[in-house]
Design a protein around this nucleic acid. Structure first.
Lengths: 165, 165
DNA sequence: TTCGATGCAAATAGTTTGCATTCTA
DNA sequence: TAGAATGCAAACTATTTGCATCGAA
């Protein structure tokens, strides 16, 4: 059972860096694969495989969904891509190195990036108490946002991503 | 989109208490529903809907899978049941009130209960920074256990659940 | 005796896979 | 030009839903 990639995240600042990394791993840069990376670099936040297949909603030519999944898998394999799950609903893919830990509202799907240093203490506790090396960058921290809870949004952080469209 | 029950957990110490709570909510105690609760009370840890439908592996008469899902939903609705997701693979259901926050190994699926007070600080940070009321009892904290990481298990907590059977 | 719940089967969503064809290196 | 990757379609897993029937209150 492989739930999460164990490859260390490999951050590519630009598309060209990503392409280079791809080739340095002996992988080919096909047009379908290029489109997946382009979508992930264009998007301001995580995308579903289907959104990528639709070409990040028409910004790019569409791709075959099966190929998108296959490519996301190889890209995750070399550490260029990460994905998270919202439990129900499709997985959300993003390039690694950006906005690592995600906090997600269970009811509206709003994703918020969180400074890794804020969750590090729990990771430490979990590591010490359970002997498990915790990963907040794969499974999001889930809760209910103030809006959905019917309360006034208090100190909302600006970097909110659309889940999909 | 409803990912997580927002009903407060309602802990029933015994089967009979659960049955009583069910009836107090105007719900009927059918044999199929009784079997779901019996399975959850019999099991030492979280079960898949399918394991419940199989009668917690022959310990009980089998149930229709569709009805199991329907019952798990109503039981979660009244706070008697919670479920978590391991991302890939089926959801894991358990009665609420026991072993609330789960830490799960991504590769072997080992689930470990964690004292709620240990994760409360992050929940607070998340609430303050993101305006999101975090729920560690729904989406598990995921990582790699020492065994799977090929290291010696250091301070492993005893309460380890089998994921399924 | 009513209407909530069941069991079956079909539908759906998300993802994976087999295979002949295409195209990159 | 070898073999990696594609695109299509079919398979698969987890879950939901429609509907006629059944049974708990």
């Amino acid at each position: 059972m492989t739930v999460v990639s164990t490859t260390p995240p490999r951050s590519a600042g630009t598309l060209d860096e990503a392409f280079a990394l791809l080739r340095s791993q002996g992988l080919r840069l096909s047009s379908a694969r290029r489109r997946v990376l382009e979508a992930l670099f264009l998007a301001p936040g995580p995308l579903t495989a289907e959104a990528i297949a639709r070409g990040f909603d028409r910004a790019l030519p569409p791709s075959d969904l099966g190929s998108v999944y296959r490519n996301l898998e190889v890209l995750e394999g070399i550490g260029l891509v990460r994905h998270v799950h919202l439990g129900h609903g499709p997985g959300l893919y993003r390039r690694s190195g950006v906005a690592e830990p995600l906090v997600v509202c269970e009811s509206c799907g709003t994703s918020i990036a969180l400074d890794p240093s804020l969750v590090e203490p729990v990771a430490t506790v979990v590591r010490e108490v359970c002997g498990i090396d915790a990963r907040f960058d794969h499974f999001p921290i889930v809760g209910t946002c103030a809006t959905c809870a019917g309360q006034g949004p208090e100190r909302r952080v600006p970097c909110t991503f659309p889940t999909d469209s």
